[in-house]
């Protein structure tokens, strides 16, 4: 059953990540446009309108990997939570502030307020992304736990956290652009393609930084790494097509390739932890799985119905 957990963990984490990418980069994009005096940019306006909803979905989507993580790596996850302590506790207040800031920027009547609200939101979400990255690394670093506790140290070695965070800050614009492009046309799509290119450059720098620090991909995940690389290449080609013919097939190629790339990325990201998954008594694992399965099928149908209803 722990395989099922793993698959659900990976799938829901990817979903979570795509949504919060939209939120973090979308807030940053809208802020940038506002600072440049481009408050009339229709793309930014649409993004601003959608941000609270996307954050609601992103947080809800985050609860699912949170659940499965507690099955796969219970002791590590709890220990990292406890070690970071009050510093970790700041994540929820940051999210609350960020959430209301997103409503505030929608209601704002002056550019000044809008910029303030967007800046606050972007800052909060950056903080949250940084915190999750740090937590992830603390979880994996068992040998450092006791010393970290003894010293009352609430920050974990930033030399490892920062390049990893930079990698996410490179991947996120790509996902944001891929999602936002579906609600855009023409020149807007071209602008999003530029955002995606910038994301790739940032991610490239982060990968170089990580390898210079001696990070490498676990041999078990080599195949997935090749998939990831191939998918990214195709995706870049897709963005190139979008630049030349924004409303042509480029975006479809980008979407397909980015989905494959996220699959590869999620597994490569997970590979160092695979050997650490905690074994559990088999009897515990299955009870109630059918209730979950039936509910999930019903929910998918219901959500499809909701989408259809609001489209009509």
């Amino acid at each position: 059953m722990s395989r099922v957990w793993l698959v659900l963990y990976l799938a829901t984490w990817v979903l979570h990540f795509v949504l919060v990418s939209y939120v973090l980069v979308g807030s940053g994009y809208a802020l940038g446009q506002s600072l440049r005096g481009r408050d009339d940019d229709p793309l930014a306006a649409r993004i601003r309108d959608l941000l609270p909803f996307m954050l609601g979905c992103g947080i809800t989507a985050g609860v699912a990997p949170l659940l499965f993580l507690q099955l796969l790596h219970q002791e590590r996850f709890y220990t990292a939570n406890l070690l970071l302590g009050p510093r970790w506790g700041a994540v929820v207040p940051a999210l609350i502030v960020g959430f209301y800031a997103l409503y505030l920027q929608k209601a704002a009547t002056t550019p000044r307020w809008r910029r303030l609200a967007l800046a606050a939101a972007t800052g909060c979400f950056l903080f949250v992304a940084w915190s999750w990255t740090e937590l992830h690394l603390v979880m994996r670093d068992t040998p450092s736990w006791v010393a970290m506790y003894a010293a009352g140290e609430r920050f974990y070695g930033q030399s490892g956290v920062l390049p990893r965070l930079l990698l996410w800050l490179g991947v996120m614009p790509v996902l944001f652009a891929g999602l936002a492009a579906w609600w855009s046309r023409g020149a807007e799509r071209q602008r999003l393609a530029v955002v995606a290119f910038v994301g790739h450059v940032i991610a490239g720098v982060a990968v170089a930084w990580l390898s210079a620090r001696g990070s490498s991909v676990d041999p078990v995940a080599r195949g997935w790494l090749y998939l990831l690389i191939a998918a990214v290449v195709i995706e870049l080609v897709g963005w190139g097509l979008v630049l030349r013919r924004p409303d042509g097939p480029g975006l479809t190629i980008v979407t397909g390739a980015a989905t494959a790339a996220m699959l590869g990325l999620a597994i490569v990201r997970e590979s160092p932890r695979l050997a650490l998954v905690t074994a559990r008594p088999a009897a515990l694992e299955a009870s109630g799985v059918w209730v979950f399965a039936i509910t999930a099928v019903f929910a998918v149908a219901a959500i499809a119905w909701v989408v259809k209803t609001i489209r009509d």
Binding site: T60, A64, F68, L284, A286, G288, T295, A296, A299
Partner: peptide, 20 residues
């Protein structure tokens, strides 16, 4: 979590539906 994770996951599905 160990004991009730599937029911917890079920709760999450309902909550997601509520949000949507």
């Amino acid at each position: 979590i160990d004991e009730f994770h599937w029911l917890w996951a079920t709760e999450w599905v309902w909550f997601s539906l509520e949000v949507v």
